[in-house]
Nucleic acid binder design. Structure first.
Length: 396
DNA sequence: TCTGGGGTCCTAGGACCC
DNA sequence: TCTGGGGTCCTAGGACCC
Protein backbone atom coordinates (compact mmCIF):
# COMPACT_ATOMS: atom_id res chain seq x y z
CA UNK A 1 0.00 0.00 0.00
CA UNK A 2 1.28 3.47 -0.83
CA UNK A 3 2.41 5.35 2.29
CA UNK A 4 0.36 8.19 3.69
CA UNK A 5 1.78 11.52 4.74
CA UNK A 6 -0.19 12.85 7.66
CA UNK A 7 0.61 16.05 9.51
CA UNK A 8 -0.45 17.18 12.94
CA UNK A 9 -0.24 20.91 13.49
CA UNK A 10 -0.36 22.37 16.98
CA UNK A 11 -0.29 26.10 17.65
CA UNK A 12 2.36 27.07 20.20
CA UNK A 13 0.93 28.30 23.54
CA UNK A 14 -2.02 29.48 21.48
CA UNK A 15 -4.12 31.68 23.79
CA UNK A 16 -1.08 33.27 25.36
CA UNK A 17 0.50 33.91 21.97
CA UNK A 18 -2.65 35.63 20.73
CA UNK A 19 -2.58 37.86 23.81
CA UNK A 20 1.06 38.70 23.13
CA UNK A 21 0.08 40.05 19.73
CA UNK A 22 -2.05 42.58 21.61
CA UNK A 23 0.42 43.22 24.40
CA UNK A 24 3.83 42.82 22.75
CA UNK A 25 5.45 44.64 25.66
CA UNK A 26 4.71 41.56 27.82
CA UNK A 27 6.73 39.25 25.60
CA UNK A 28 9.37 37.33 27.50
CA UNK A 29 7.59 37.51 30.84
CA UNK A 30 5.97 34.47 32.44
CA UNK A 31 2.26 34.69 31.70
CA UNK A 32 -0.79 32.48 32.05
CA UNK A 33 -4.31 32.65 30.67
CA UNK A 34 -7.20 31.65 32.89
CA UNK A 35 -9.77 32.69 35.44
CA UNK A 36 -12.80 34.86 35.09
CA UNK A 37 -12.92 38.37 33.89
CA UNK A 38 -13.37 40.89 36.68
CA UNK A 39 -16.77 42.48 36.90
CA UNK A 40 -14.93 45.78 37.07
CA UNK A 41 -13.00 45.85 33.82
CA UNK A 42 -10.24 48.09 35.18
CA UNK A 43 -6.77 46.65 35.05
CA UNK A 44 -6.98 43.58 32.87
CA UNK A 45 -3.41 42.45 33.45
CA UNK A 46 -2.73 41.28 36.97
CA UNK A 47 -0.24 38.98 38.58
CA UNK A 48 -1.20 35.56 39.87
CA UNK A 49 -0.59 36.84 43.40
CA UNK A 50 -3.50 39.26 43.06
CA UNK A 51 -5.98 36.60 42.01
CA UNK A 52 -8.43 34.90 44.27
CA UNK A 53 -11.14 32.53 43.23
CA UNK A 54 -11.75 29.41 41.24
CA UNK A 55 -10.31 28.58 37.90
CA UNK A 56 -7.53 26.79 36.11
CA UNK A 57 -4.77 27.76 33.73
CA UNK A 58 -5.82 27.23 30.14
CA UNK A 59 -2.46 28.21 28.64
CA UNK A 60 0.95 29.06 30.07
CA UNK A 61 3.76 30.69 28.12
CA UNK A 62 7.03 28.78 27.93
CA UNK A 63 8.51 31.24 30.43
CA UNK A 64 5.72 30.37 32.87
CA UNK A 65 6.10 26.64 32.24
CA UNK A 66 9.73 26.98 33.28
CA UNK A 67 8.42 27.96 36.73
CA UNK A 68 6.46 24.71 37.00
CA UNK A 69 2.97 25.84 36.05
CA UNK A 70 1.00 24.23 33.25
CA UNK A 71 -2.46 24.15 31.76
CA UNK A 72 -5.10 22.50 33.91
CA UNK A 73 -3.41 23.60 37.11
CA UNK A 74 -5.58 25.46 39.61
CA UNK A 75 -4.81 29.17 39.67
CA UNK A 76 -4.33 29.25 43.44
CA UNK A 77 -1.77 26.50 43.22
CA UNK A 78 -0.06 28.24 40.32
CA UNK A 79 0.04 31.46 42.34
CA UNK A 80 2.20 29.75 44.94
CA UNK A 81 4.66 28.56 42.32
CA UNK A 82 4.78 31.73 40.26
CA UNK A 83 3.21 34.65 42.18
CA UNK A 84 4.68 37.24 39.81
CA UNK A 85 3.53 35.58 36.60
CA UNK A 86 1.05 37.71 34.70
CA UNK A 87 -2.53 36.54 34.53
CA UNK A 88 -4.91 37.41 31.72
CA UNK A 89 -8.54 36.36 31.46
CA UNK A 90 -9.39 34.27 28.41
CA UNK A 91 -10.95 36.03 25.42
CA UNK A 92 -12.42 33.14 23.48
CA UNK A 93 -13.94 35.28 20.74
CA UNK A 94 -10.49 36.54 19.86
CA UNK A 95 -8.97 33.04 19.97
CA UNK A 96 -11.71 31.73 17.71
CA UNK A 97 -10.98 34.53 15.27
CA UNK A 98 -7.32 33.59 15.13
CA UNK A 99 -8.29 29.93 14.92
CA UNK A 100 -10.26 30.62 11.74
CA UNK A 101 -7.35 32.66 10.37
CA UNK A 102 -4.74 29.97 10.83
CA UNK A 103 -6.99 27.20 9.53
CA UNK A 104 -7.84 29.24 6.44
CA UNK A 105 -4.14 29.84 5.87
CA UNK A 106 -3.40 26.12 6.09
CA UNK A 107 -6.33 25.28 3.86
CA UNK A 108 -4.95 27.53 1.14
CA UNK A 109 -1.83 25.32 1.04
CA UNK A 110 -3.30 21.93 1.97
CA UNK A 111 -7.10 21.66 1.85
CA UNK A 112 -7.56 18.23 3.43
CA UNK A 113 -7.73 19.15 7.13
CA UNK A 114 -9.45 17.78 10.22
CA UNK A 115 -10.43 20.12 13.02
CA UNK A 116 -9.25 18.98 16.45
CA UNK A 117 -10.36 21.95 18.46
CA UNK A 118 -9.39 25.58 18.53
CA UNK A 119 -5.63 25.22 18.22
CA UNK A 120 -4.84 22.00 16.38
CA UNK A 121 -5.58 20.14 13.18
CA UNK A 122 -4.58 17.08 11.23
CA UNK A 123 -3.67 17.52 7.57
CA UNK A 124 -3.51 14.81 4.95
CA UNK A 125 -0.55 15.74 2.76
CA UNK A 126 -0.52 12.55 0.74
CA UNK A 127 -1.78 13.89 -2.58
CA UNK A 128 0.39 17.03 -2.32
CA UNK A 129 3.48 14.93 -1.68
CA UNK A 130 2.61 12.69 -4.60
CA UNK A 131 1.91 15.53 -7.01
CA UNK A 132 5.20 17.25 -6.14
CA UNK A 133 7.10 14.15 -7.24
CA UNK A 134 7.87 15.59 -10.68
CA UNK A 135 9.50 18.86 -9.62
CA UNK A 136 10.58 18.06 -6.04
CA UNK A 137 13.20 15.98 -4.27
CA UNK A 138 13.27 12.25 -5.03
CA UNK A 139 12.63 11.36 -1.37
CA UNK A 140 8.92 11.78 -0.60
CA UNK A 141 9.66 12.48 3.07
CA UNK A 142 11.86 15.38 2.01
CA UNK A 143 8.98 16.68 -0.11
CA UNK A 144 6.62 16.30 2.86
CA UNK A 145 9.02 18.43 4.88
CA UNK A 146 8.89 21.14 2.20
CA UNK A 147 5.09 21.18 2.26
CA UNK A 148 5.04 21.38 6.06
CA UNK A 149 7.51 24.26 5.99
CA UNK A 150 5.23 26.05 3.53
CA UNK A 151 2.35 25.56 5.94
CA UNK A 152 4.30 26.94 8.88
CA UNK A 153 5.22 30.00 6.83
CA UNK A 154 1.62 30.51 5.70
CA UNK A 155 0.40 30.38 9.31
CA UNK A 156 3.01 32.85 10.45
CA UNK A 157 2.27 35.25 7.59
CA UNK A 158 -1.48 35.12 8.17
CA UNK A 159 -1.45 35.39 11.97
CA UNK A 160 1.99 36.27 13.29
CA UNK A 161 1.85 33.05 15.30
CA UNK A 162 4.11 30.02 15.37
CA UNK A 163 3.10 26.39 15.28
CA UNK A 164 4.71 22.98 15.56
CA UNK A 165 4.16 20.23 13.03
CA UNK A 166 4.75 16.51 13.02
CA UNK A 167 4.63 14.54 9.76
CA UNK A 168 4.46 10.73 9.85
CA UNK A 169 2.51 7.91 8.18
CA UNK A 170 -0.49 8.33 10.51
CA UNK A 171 -2.39 10.56 12.92
CA UNK A 172 -1.26 8.84 16.08
CA UNK A 173 2.44 9.20 15.32
CA UNK A 174 2.04 12.73 13.98
CA UNK A 175 0.34 13.80 17.18
CA UNK A 176 3.34 12.53 19.12
CA UNK A 177 5.83 13.97 16.64
CA UNK A 178 4.42 17.51 16.69
CA UNK A 179 5.24 17.70 20.40
CA UNK A 180 8.86 16.62 20.08
CA UNK A 181 10.35 19.96 19.12
CA UNK A 182 8.04 22.67 20.45
CA UNK A 183 7.83 25.58 19.89
CA UNK A 184 8.22 26.13 16.19
CA UNK A 185 9.30 22.55 15.52
CA UNK A 186 8.98 20.42 12.43
CA UNK A 187 9.49 16.73 13.08
CA UNK A 188 9.29 14.23 10.24
CA UNK A 189 9.26 10.56 11.18
CA UNK A 190 8.93 7.52 8.98
CA UNK A 191 8.24 3.97 10.10
CA UNK A 192 11.94 3.32 10.64
CA UNK A 193 12.29 6.16 13.17
CA UNK A 194 9.75 4.75 15.63
CA UNK A 195 12.09 2.72 17.87
CA UNK A 196 14.59 5.54 18.29
CA UNK A 197 12.21 8.49 18.58
CA UNK A 198 8.95 7.16 19.98
CA UNK A 199 9.73 4.12 22.11
CA UNK A 200 11.70 6.01 24.77
CA UNK A 201 8.69 8.28 25.48
CA UNK A 202 6.35 7.72 28.44
CA UNK A 203 3.25 5.71 27.48
CA UNK A 204 1.20 8.74 28.56
CA UNK A 205 2.33 10.52 25.38
CA UNK A 206 0.07 8.30 23.30
CA UNK A 207 -3.16 10.12 22.53
CA UNK A 208 -5.79 8.03 24.30
CA UNK A 209 -3.63 6.87 27.21
CA UNK A 210 -4.52 9.22 30.03
CA UNK A 211 -3.65 9.48 33.71
CA UNK A 212 -5.67 6.43 34.79
CA UNK A 213 -4.42 4.08 32.11
CA UNK A 214 -0.80 5.17 32.47
CA UNK A 215 -0.96 4.64 36.24
CA UNK A 216 -2.32 1.15 35.71
CA UNK A 217 0.38 0.48 33.13
CA UNK A 218 3.03 1.55 35.61
CA UNK A 219 1.59 -0.81 38.17
CA UNK A 220 2.39 -3.68 35.83
CA UNK A 221 5.84 -2.34 35.10
CA UNK A 222 5.16 -0.59 31.80
CA UNK A 223 6.37 2.99 31.63
CA UNK A 224 7.44 3.70 28.06
CA UNK A 225 5.85 3.31 24.66
CA UNK A 226 8.55 0.78 23.81
CA UNK A 227 7.75 -1.35 26.84
CA UNK A 228 4.12 -1.19 25.83
CA UNK A 229 4.95 -2.17 22.26
CA UNK A 230 6.87 -5.22 23.45
CA UNK A 231 4.34 -6.19 26.12
CA UNK A 232 2.36 -9.38 25.75
CA UNK A 233 -0.89 -8.60 24.00
CA UNK A 234 -2.83 -11.10 26.08
CA UNK A 235 -1.55 -9.44 29.26
CA UNK A 236 -2.83 -6.05 28.07
CA UNK A 237 -6.17 -7.49 27.05
CA UNK A 238 -6.40 -9.13 30.47
CA UNK A 239 -5.82 -5.83 32.22
CA UNK A 240 -7.65 -3.39 29.98
CA UNK A 241 -10.26 -5.38 28.13
CA UNK A 242 -10.39 -6.74 24.63
CA UNK A 243 -10.91 -3.50 22.81
CA UNK A 244 -8.75 -1.05 24.76
CA UNK A 245 -5.96 -3.55 25.47
CA UNK A 246 -5.60 -4.51 21.82
CA UNK A 247 -5.75 -0.87 20.74
CA UNK A 248 -2.98 0.07 23.16
CA UNK A 249 -0.71 -2.57 21.71
CA UNK A 250 -1.40 -1.45 18.15
CA UNK A 251 -0.88 2.19 19.08
CA UNK A 252 2.43 1.54 20.82
CA UNK A 253 3.64 -0.18 17.68
CA UNK A 254 2.76 2.91 15.68
CA UNK A 255 -0.17 1.37 13.87
CA UNK A 256 -3.17 3.59 13.23
CA UNK A 257 -5.47 3.49 10.21
CA UNK A 258 -7.79 6.37 11.03
CA UNK A 259 -8.49 8.68 8.11
CA UNK A 260 -8.35 12.46 8.22
CA UNK A 261 -12.02 13.47 8.50
CA UNK A 262 -12.83 16.89 7.09
CA UNK A 263 -16.27 17.21 8.64
CA UNK A 264 -18.55 15.45 11.11
CA UNK A 265 -21.93 16.20 12.63
CA UNK A 266 -21.96 17.40 16.24
CA UNK A 267 -23.31 14.87 18.73
CA UNK A 268 -24.24 17.12 21.62
CA UNK A 269 -24.33 20.71 22.78
CA UNK A 270 -23.92 21.74 26.39
CA UNK A 271 -23.49 24.65 28.75
CA UNK A 272 -22.22 24.45 32.29
CA UNK A 273 -20.98 26.74 34.98
CA UNK A 274 -18.94 26.43 38.14
CA UNK A 275 -20.08 28.82 40.84
CA UNK A 276 -17.79 31.33 42.51
CA UNK A 277 -18.94 29.81 45.81
CA UNK A 278 -20.74 26.51 46.31
CA UNK A 279 -24.49 27.03 46.46
CA UNK A 280 -26.93 25.52 48.92
CA UNK A 281 -29.75 23.61 47.21
CA UNK A 282 -32.38 25.14 49.48
CA UNK A 283 -31.07 28.45 50.73
CA UNK A 284 -29.75 29.47 47.31
CA UNK A 285 -32.60 27.97 45.38
CA UNK A 286 -33.63 31.21 43.68
CA UNK A 287 -30.15 31.88 42.42
CA UNK A 288 -29.86 28.26 41.29
CA UNK A 289 -33.16 28.50 39.51
CA UNK A 290 -32.07 31.59 37.61
CA UNK A 291 -28.76 30.01 36.60
CA UNK A 292 -30.51 26.77 35.62
CA UNK A 293 -32.97 28.57 33.37
CA UNK A 294 -30.19 30.66 31.88
CA UNK A 295 -28.21 27.55 30.96
CA UNK A 296 -31.28 26.14 29.20
CA UNK A 297 -31.74 29.40 27.29
CA UNK A 298 -28.11 29.35 26.22
CA UNK A 299 -28.38 25.75 25.02
CA UNK A 300 -31.53 26.71 23.07
CA UNK A 301 -29.70 29.69 21.56
CA UNK A 302 -26.80 27.46 20.55
CA UNK A 303 -29.21 25.03 18.88
CA UNK A 304 -30.86 27.85 17.00
CA UNK A 305 -27.60 29.42 15.90
CA UNK A 306 -26.13 26.12 14.74
CA UNK A 307 -29.34 24.89 13.16
CA UNK A 308 -30.02 21.80 15.26
CA UNK A 309 -32.63 20.39 17.56
CA UNK A 310 -32.20 17.55 20.00
CA UNK A 311 -34.10 14.79 21.74
CA UNK A 312 -32.10 13.87 24.83
CA UNK A 313 -31.90 16.49 27.57
CA UNK A 314 -29.24 16.02 30.22
CA UNK A 315 -28.51 17.52 33.61
CA UNK A 316 -25.08 17.59 35.20
CA UNK A 317 -24.43 18.46 38.79
CA UNK A 318 -21.19 18.57 40.73
CA UNK A 319 -21.24 18.61 44.51
CA UNK A 320 -18.87 20.43 46.81
CA UNK A 321 -16.89 17.19 47.17
CA UNK A 322 -16.36 17.18 43.40
CA UNK A 323 -18.51 14.10 42.91
CA UNK A 324 -20.43 14.49 39.66
CA UNK A 325 -23.81 13.04 38.76
CA UNK A 326 -25.75 13.16 35.51
CA UNK A 327 -29.33 12.41 34.60
CA UNK A 328 -30.93 12.49 31.21
CA UNK A 329 -34.26 12.10 29.62
CA UNK A 330 -35.23 11.44 26.05
CA UNK A 331 -38.24 13.24 24.66
CA UNK A 332 -40.70 11.87 22.11
CA UNK A 333 -39.89 14.72 19.73
CA UNK A 334 -36.73 16.73 19.19
CA UNK A 335 -36.81 20.30 20.41
CA UNK A 336 -34.87 23.52 20.42
CA UNK A 337 -37.28 25.34 22.73
CA UNK A 338 -35.80 26.71 25.95
CA UNK A 339 -38.93 26.06 28.00
CA UNK A 340 -39.17 22.47 26.83
CA UNK A 341 -35.53 21.94 27.62
CA UNK A 342 -36.01 23.57 31.00
CA UNK A 343 -38.96 21.31 31.81
CA UNK A 344 -37.10 18.13 30.84
CA UNK A 345 -33.97 19.18 32.73
CA UNK A 346 -36.20 20.01 35.68
CA UNK A 347 -37.49 16.45 35.65
CA UNK A 348 -33.92 15.21 35.65
CA UNK A 349 -33.23 17.40 38.66
CA UNK A 350 -35.89 15.57 40.65
CA UNK A 351 -33.98 12.33 40.29
CA UNK A 352 -30.76 13.58 41.81
CA UNK A 353 -29.95 13.81 45.52
CA UNK A 354 -29.78 17.37 46.84
CA UNK A 355 -28.16 16.85 50.19
CA UNK A 356 -24.91 18.73 49.64
CA UNK A 357 -23.78 22.09 48.41
CA UNK A 358 -23.45 22.36 44.67
CA UNK A 359 -20.35 23.44 42.82
CA UNK A 360 -21.40 23.11 39.19
CA UNK A 361 -24.58 22.96 37.19
CA UNK A 362 -24.80 21.99 33.53
CA UNK A 363 -27.39 21.33 30.83
CA UNK A 364 -26.80 19.21 27.76
CA UNK A 365 -28.73 18.17 24.70
CA UNK A 366 -27.91 15.17 22.55
CA UNK A 367 -29.33 13.03 19.77
CA UNK A 368 -29.16 16.05 17.51
CA UNK A 369 -30.88 16.41 14.17
CA UNK A 370 -31.66 19.13 11.66
CA UNK A 371 -35.22 20.43 11.98
CA UNK A 372 -37.26 19.64 8.90
CA UNK A 373 -35.08 16.71 8.05
CA UNK A 374 -36.88 13.39 8.33
CA UNK A 375 -36.25 12.20 11.87
CA UNK A 376 -34.59 8.82 12.10
CA UNK A 377 -37.40 6.28 12.31
CA UNK A 378 -37.97 5.30 15.93
CA UNK A 379 -40.07 2.19 16.22
CA UNK A 380 -40.07 2.32 19.99
CA UNK A 381 -42.90 4.19 21.66
CA UNK A 382 -41.42 4.09 25.12
CA UNK A 383 -40.18 7.63 24.88
CA UNK A 384 -43.70 8.78 24.17
CA UNK A 385 -45.27 7.74 27.43
CA UNK A 386 -43.86 10.39 29.70
CA UNK A 387 -44.25 10.17 33.45
CA UNK A 388 -46.47 12.71 35.11
CA UNK A 389 -44.87 16.01 35.96
CA UNK A 390 -43.79 16.31 39.54
CA UNK A 391 -43.85 19.55 41.35
CA UNK A 392 -40.97 21.53 39.93
CA UNK A 393 -37.80 21.77 41.92
CA UNK A 394 -36.08 25.09 41.31
CA UNK A 395 -39.18 26.25 39.58
CA UNK A 396 -38.57 28.70 36.79
C1' DT B 1 -8.19 28.50 49.33
C1' DC B 2 -6.88 22.13 44.78
C1' DT B 3 -9.55 20.74 40.37
C1' DG B 4 -12.94 25.33 33.77
C1' DG B 5 -15.89 24.41 29.94
C1' DG B 6 -16.72 22.20 25.71
C1' DG B 7 -16.75 17.92 23.68
C1' DT B 8 -16.30 12.38 22.08
C1' DC B 9 -16.37 7.60 22.86
C1' DC B 10 -16.98 3.39 25.56
C1' DT B 11 -19.20 0.19 28.83
C1' DA B 12 -22.85 -2.12 30.94
C1' DG B 13 -27.47 -3.39 32.42
C1' DG B 14 -32.31 -3.40 31.52
C1' DA B 15 -36.25 -2.80 28.43
C1' DC B 16 -38.15 -4.17 24.50
C1' DC B 17 -38.54 -6.30 19.92
C1' DC B 18 -38.19 -10.00 16.39
C1' DT C 1 -43.39 -23.69 31.60
C1' DC C 2 -37.46 -22.84 31.46
C1' DT C 3 -35.56 -21.25 27.64
C1' DG C 4 -32.60 -18.98 22.39
C1' DG C 5 -29.99 -15.25 20.15
C1' DG C 6 -29.49 -10.84 18.14
C1' DG C 7 -30.41 -6.02 17.80
C1' DT C 8 -31.57 -1.19 19.31
C1' DC C 9 -32.64 2.26 22.60
C1' DC C 10 -32.18 4.39 27.06
C1' DT C 11 -29.59 5.68 31.04
C1' DA C 12 -25.41 6.57 34.20
C1' DG C 13 -20.85 6.86 34.77
C1' DG C 14 -16.15 7.40 33.46
C1' DA C 15 -11.86 8.06 30.68
C1' DC C 16 -9.97 11.04 27.75
C1' DC C 17 -9.00 15.18 24.82
C1' DC C 18 -8.40 20.30 23.73
Amino acid sequence: MAPHFIAHLDMDAFYASVELLRYPQLRGRPMVIGGRRRATEGTVVRTLREYSGRGVITTATYEARALGVHSGMGLMKAAKLAPDALLLPADFDEYRRYSRMFKDAVRAVAPHIEDRGIDEIYIDLTSLVQSSAAEGAPDPWARARVVATDIQRAVREATGLSCSIGVTPNKLLSKIASELDKPGGLTVLSEADIPARVWPLPARKVNGIGPKASARLESIGIRTVGELAKADRALLVGHFGKSYGAWMHEAANGRDERAVITWSEPKSISRETTFEDDLHPVRDREQLSRIFTDLCVRVADDLERKGYEGKTIGLKLRYDNFKTVTRDRTLAQPTRDARTIRRAAGECLKRVPLDRRIRLLGVRIGTLSKPGAQAPRDASSRAAHTPMLFEDRWKS
